[in-house]
Design a protein around this nucleic acid. Structure first.
Lengths: 337, 337
DNA sequence: CTGAAAGCGCTTACAG
DNA sequence: CTGAAAGCGCTTACAG
């Protein structure tokens, strides 16, 4: 390992000057800087992160926290954020909570994070009342993505969830559907994760505006993934409430619904229309109509906001748009359960 | 921030003893250890990673390198590896190469990695001849997952790709297919990434064993993802070579094929049978027949092997199995192009 | 614009 | 089993 002293000696300057020159600080003459850069390159020098961190107080890392990296939205946000962060010279520390309450507590309620990251990016993290205190004690800059419970003082990047849900619903209503089920999203959850609450609100608002009375029998809660969508649809069918369309809170839930419908011999869209939110990579493969949200863009904007020197925009809402494919059609016959 | 001195003072011992006690080293009496632990807990102390790293020489991090975190296999491996690594007390440094040659070079051919990680996990990383030298100069322990080009001295975790491809093919052949196309996998690639080469070999072997002469017109190269599968299938149809089944090198390519087939009004399996390799989360949603591989298990085993104190098994082959769903059936009519 | 020196907060021989 | 002291490799005031 070549150290800073080696470079200093080779360039004929002090270590302080090497440090300044390499980090591009002002107060170094161009000729000196060039000599230092040359020596560093020649010796293949790169500063020890541990030493820099200890001496400088910065860790050079950003913690990226997701519920489940295996889900489309999260992996897409992380991929975009990772690229931006590495470009800016940061290490990316990945934390995949995986639904483990223990992992969540350890991360949030421990000094661990503050000592390993310069900033935090919380993606779709529901926070409890006591978490807010812990998060501010981190004394770290942060940003939330797609989080309905923004942290005071942190900017947030997200979409208008009420509006996105309304777009999906208006499409179904426009096709003539009146018995529209809603699956997934734990809106009764004490975490009050507004993504779920907002999408449900959009669902209810669209119905009401169209003069359709919401029917609680058409709503089934469940987790926002394949299994959740499959199970919710199973329940829905068991209720025999009569529906011609399903509004799934996200595309993966819609795909889960598809699995269950397929198992019951129901065709989409002939028997049931199906719409989601996301525009998952695989949505085209299954012809899923959905409301597209810019996931990668949210990751990039989050990093940008985090690293912005000036006062960043505090609450960024990115646009969504309806993408019609083959999973929706006019109802063939209305099953009034 | 409470530091080690604070704990030492509170416990009435030296910092050396605090250090030993907290890290569970021997040579500390039980009573002393207890006192130190108490003090540390009371003060909410946790050691500064930067300082530990600088003094101890360990970084406490493991670099996890993937081509694209948005693809099923990679996110699934990473999720499992992340859990195991955090359990073992390591930080997870994520590197998503995203096909950027620049990112790849920077990572492999720079001292950067050695100074930030104690070990490296390379997932499906094709390596060039010059990369091997760079990787060994890292002087870091490592492991490869699903990599056909194992690094000398590093253990590798993977599946038998030849065998997996044969299982898929034998299923199609057993159904009566003789005109079976193969899509995706750049086997001519100079990287000689054996995953592709091996799966192709399985394809050819299965044909030959069944007495079917391979037809080059039925093979289309392409990237192992949705877009690649869609484009390859488009090409395949344009060739008009006559086929009744498609063997896709991975499930995402199969899903891409599905998109194209759908666009051309072809039904699966009535017009074309389709089989992949992976058992992607969404395979059930689209009824895809596939050869399942244990992705999460590969992530866990990789970490286990990396952290194993004793001599680890050098080359671990995990089992695969055919999972029949609705995308395959006997050919209705053979289109002999 | 540049350098000498202290200090960041730990761990690790070395003694005892 | 425990402690005093050096050292890990940088960065940062402080001087000049």
């Amino acid at each position: 390992m070549t150290r800073i002293d080696d470079v200093a000696r080779a360039a004929g300057v002090s270590t302080a000057t090497v440090s300044r020159a390499l980090r591009g600080l002002p107060m170094v003459s161009e000729s000196t800087r060039r000599r230092v850069l040359d020596a560093a390159t020649r010796l293949g020098y790169s500063a020890s992160p541990s030493a820099s961190r200890l001496a400088g107080g910065r860790t050079g890392g950003v913690a990226v926290v997701v519920p489940r990296i295996t889900r489309w939205f999260f992996s897409t946000v992380v991929e975009a954020a990772e690229e931006s962060l590495h470009e800016a010279g940061y290490d990316v520390l990945l934390f995949n909570l995986g639904g483990s309450e223990q992992a969540r507590l350890k991360l949030l309620h421990t000094g661990a994070l503050r000592q390993r990251a310069d900033a935090v990016m919380l993606i779709s993290m529901p926070l409890l009342a006591e978490d807010f205190a812990a998060v501010s004690q981190l004394e770290l800059p942060g940003v939330t993505v797609s989080s309905g419970t923004p942290v005071p003082g942190w900017p947030s990047i997200r979409i208008d969830d009420v509006g996105a849900a309304r777009k999906a619903m208006d499409h179904l209503i426009g096709l003539g559907h009146t018995r529209i089920a809603r699956i997934c999203g734990e809106s009764s959850d004490e975490l009050a994760f507004t993504t779920h609450v907002d999408r449900r609100r959009g669902y209810l608002e669209a119905l009401t505006r169209a003069g359709i009375t919401p029917d609680p029998a058409l709503e089934v809660e469940g987790s926002l993934d394949l299994a959740g969508g499959a199970a919710a649809t199973e329940q829905l069918l068991a209720r025999d409430a009569g529906f011609t369309a399903i509004f799934a809170t996200c595309d993966e839930a819609a795909m889960g619904a598809l699995t269950t419908l397929r198992r019951h011999g129901l065709r989409v869209p002939e028997d049931v229309s199906l719409v989601g939110i996301d525009d998952h990579d695989l949505a085209p493969a299954i012809g899923l109509t959905t409301v597209a949200q810019p996931a990668a863009e949210q990751g990039r904007r989050a990093v940008q906001t985090l690293l912005a020197p000036a006062a960043p925009q505090r609450d960024v809402l990115l646009p969504t748009h309806l993408t019609v494919r083959e999973s929706t059609a006019a109802p063939a016959r209305t099953l009034d359960g």
